[in-house]
Each structure stands twice: as structure tokens, then as C-alpha cells.
Design a protein around this nucleic acid. Structure first.
Length: 212
DNA sequence: AAGTATCCCAACCGCGAGAGC
DNA sequence: GGCTCTCGCGGTTGGGATACT
């Protein structure tokens, strides 16, 4: 895959966004819609790379964004979903109306991880090296006996079918809103954060019963 | 009151996947 | 079928704000 030229281009602004840049971006998207991030900066007259514009929009400017004050319910949900999904912040964010993956990631790294909730062993550490804390998982709320079926050759009875679980989640993402998860959160934005996982979520909780 | 340490959040970077040519 | 480009994700960093000494 061709390495993308990216933002390190001469003459582009970097660092914090100004109010004027925000205005330009918001009004451009209001007029033309999201997408075409690569072409957006030039068309909108912004001296930013497309990636930077996208990030600013998704994490800050998009309507419906909630900022700060993560409630106890939300925190609990984050913990459960992280146990289930590992560091799949975008999926977790998809379950938290108005929250962004970046915010959840920050919240996790700055708050929860300090309380001893480290990275889940399976997807945790992401790809490759899986350096970060792949080993130590002191407070993982998964009881012994719920071993991961895959890889190591554990499997056996009682093992969670993680792949099925993930497939299910991802399928939901798809039909929830033909676009990606960020979009459906506005309509299901009846304000309230689910105090626990909603009905549809029970499906995958069946596959991860220790969360109940 | 001043200096230093720590925390938190916005933004950047690098990579992989998928779409289009 | 292979190559290039765009998009999206997760990890990391920088800097401002706040707390502590």
C-alpha cells in the first residue's frame, strides 16, 4: 500500500485549531456534507490536512457531541465493553451516544487504567507486538474458566466465541446506520445513556456471560 | 507567591483495510 | 490482478490547566 503523503506537508497549519478554522470547517460541512476529506481542505480553504479536518470534526465539532462528565453509568459501560472488546475504542464509542473514540480512549488511559483496569488479554495491546500490558491483567473481571477459545488451543466448553461476538457487534454497526457508527448515535440520542446494556446488547452478553 | 510536578485532553502519527482505477 | 489513494483506527505526544510543595 502506498504510504500516504500525509500532513507533514509544508505550509499546513498544525496544533490547536482556531475559532476561525472551526467556523470554516463547520460551514463547509454544513453545505457539502462529510466525506472527501482529502479534498476538503483545499476546497474549504483550510491550511490543514484532510486527516486533521476529519479528526476535528469527529471529535469536537460534530453536532451531538457530549464533552466531559462521564457518568457512572457510562463508566460502567465502558468497563464492560472494554472487557468484551479490548481497545476497540471506536466500537465502544458506538455504544455511548455522543462520546467519541478519542474521548473514551483518553478517559481510559488517564483514569481507568490507573485504577488497575488494564488492557484485556485477547485483543488488548492491539496488533503486532501487543506490548502494552499484554501480560498483567490484575483486575480483569472475567472469572477463571472463561478462557478464550481461540489461539492457544484452549477452546473447550464454556469458552466464549469471541469471533462470533465481534462479528455480531460489527454486523449491528452496519445495519444500525448504513454508515458508520457515529451517525446513528444522534437519533438514538434520547439523551439517556443506557445504565446497562440495552436489549439488543443482551445478545452478545449471552456470549460473554461473566459480564452479567 | 513562586516553582515544580502531575493530570487531562486535543491533536498528530503510522499503519492496515478497502475502494477505485 | 496489481497498484494507488482515501479513510478510519489505535497508540502516542505536546501543551495547557491544576494541584502540590
Amino acid at each position: 500500500m502506498g504510504r500516504k503523503p500525509c500532513c507533514s506537508k509544508e505550509g499546513l497549519n498544525r496544533g490547536a485549531w482556531t475559532a476561525m478554522e472551526d467556523d470554516i470547517l463547520v460551514s463547509y460541512i454544513a453545505k457539502h456534507g462529510e466525506g472527501k476529506w482529502g479534498a476538503l481542505p483545499k476546497r474549504a480553504g483550510l491550511k490543514r490536512c484532510g486527516k486533521s479536518c476529519r479528526l476535528r470534526w469527529l471529535n469536537y465539532l460534530r453536532p451531538g457531541i457530549k464533552r466531559g462528565n462521564i457518568s457512572g453509568d457510562e463508566e460502567e459501560l465502558i468497563l464492560r465493553l472494554h472487557t468484551l472488546l479490548g481497545n476497540r475504542w471506536s466500537l465502544i464509542a458506538g455504544r455511548l451516544p455522543g462520546r467519541t473514540d478519542n474521548e473514551i480512549k483518553n478517559y481510559w488511559n488517564s483514569t481507568l487504567s490507573k485504577r488497575g483496569f488494564l488492557i484485556s488479554p485477547w485483543r488488548g495491546g492491539g496488533h503486532d507486538d501487543g506490548n502494552a500490558a499484554a501480560g498483567a491483567v490484575p483486575n480483569l473481571p472475567m472469572p477463571i474458566g472463561y478462557e478464550l477459545g481461540g489461539a492457544g488451543g484452549g477452546g473447550e466448553a464454556g469458552a466464549v466465541d469471541l469471533e462470533a461476538l465481534l462479528g455480531q457487534l460489527e454486523a449491528e454497526e452496519d445495519d444500525d446506520g448504513d454508515h458508520h457508527h457515529h451517525h446513528h448515535q444522534q437519533q438514538q440520542q434520547e439523551e439517556e445513556v443506557p445504565s446497562s446494556l440495552g436489549d439488543e446488547d443482551d445478545d452478545y452478553l449471552e456470549l460473554a456471560p461473566w459480564l452479567l
